[in-house]
């Protein structure tokens, strides 16, 4: 009994030390919210196109039945990081053959049209989510967010925040490759 009590501080130190060691991991992001969507079917939604844009609208049915997994990017013209991310996504579409769909989140149509005219439009389809309700269906916490959706409508991957910078691009590329969202033999 005495020996047990004498050992208690040591045990406590090991437990707390282990906890601190875990907390020190630089890759751990305490703000990260675990997504419930991963490996779950993508939510049902049906969005009209952005008025003034020739790109058609986006519904869940557009995400299923594709040959390869596709990417859904939630963006807005008022979102500054989206502007930086736009170039990265465009490169993925043009050079790697990624298929990209967009959800224009709580954006004024005229602003979205101007934004896409200025920067170019890499999106095959864009749904206008004026109310933000589709965003909630996707469990959105902010823009930009990017999802990879499998051909059967399963969400494979979620990236919160802009895919900008070497680390983020590397993670995203890995996810794309793992999902098989890039065509074989693409220039990369």
């Amino acid at each position: 009994m005495k020996r047990l009590i004498a050992g208690l501080p040591f045990i406590a130190a090991v437990i707390f030390g282990g906890f601190f060691l875990w907390g020190l991991n630089p890759d751990r992001d305490p703000n990260e919210i675990p997504s419930v969507l991963i490996s779950q079917p993508a939510p049902a939604f049906d969005l009209d196109p952005v008025p003034g844009l020739e790109t058609p609208g986006l519904a869940r049915s557009d995400l299923v039945g594709n040959e390869r997994p596709v990417v859904v990017n939630v963006f807005a013209s008022w979102c500054v990081p989206c502007r930086a991310e736009h170039a990265v996504l465009t490169r993925f579409v043009e050079r790697e053959g990624m298929r990209l769909f967009g959800i224009n989140y709580k954006d004024k149509p005229e602003d979205a049209v101007k934004w896409l005219n200025d920067l170019g439009n890499p999106y095959e389809r864009i749904g206008s989510d004026l109310s933000g309700r589709t965003g909630i269906e996707w469990g959105l916490s902010g823009v930009p967010e990017t999802f990879i959706v499998d051909g059967d409508g399963t969400v494979l991957f979620r990236y919160v925040g802009p895919v900008v910078g070497p680390d983020a691009v590397e993670r995203f590329t890995q996810a794309l490759k793992q999902a098989g969202a890039l065509p074989k033999g693409a220039a990369s």
Binding site: P34, S35, V36, P43, I136, G139
Partner: peptide, 9 residues
């Protein structure tokens, strides 16, 4: 309803 979309978090 909200938990189904955002999880236990």
């Amino acid at each position: 309803y909200i938990r189904a979309r955002y999880g236990d978090y």
